[in-house]
Amino acid sequence: MSLIPFRTKRATGMEPGSLATLADFRNEMNRLFEGFFSRPLQMPGWFETAEPGQWLPSIDMSETDKQIHVRAELPGIEPKDVDVSVSEDRLVIAGEKKCEKEESGEGWTHRESHYGSFSRAIPLPEAVDPAKVTARYDKGVLTVELTKSPTSTSRKVPVLAGSTER
């Protein structure tokens, strides 16, 4: 019967667990800006946004002839709380950062860190062998080494001269 639809909480962006706090919003903007200006033309992760209540860890990625290396900053996380999964062309780093002293929720006067669950799917530049992946967590930094799949080795295609018309 209502002619004027009510605004949903989602539409106002005030749903609990979304970018509800100013700090969340600022951190997300910082990540987008830093990602954009540091590497404007190579931004596979630029359009990724965190699900409501989640955050996205920052990553570095490099490749050699045979391997792909990914490093993520994940301070304060138990290694058992990090879940690394690999498909042929995608690496997913997920888990949860728990705040041990947050149960009471009282007394915190200043918050800048991320807490809660995170999940980031990282498209890989080449197919990798899911059986040949190692992940190591040290001093708050996760390093994942992936071995490129030999079947996906890129091939140089010779360009022939001449017309294709018959």
């Binding site: 830093e34 596979p44 990625m61 490749e63």
Partner: peptide, 13 residues
């Protein structure tokens, strides 16, 4: 200092 080996594809921090 820590550097990733090879060619850098993505650098966010």
């Amino acid at each position: 200092a820590r550097t990733l080996p090879g060619r850098i594809l993505q650098q966010e921090y």
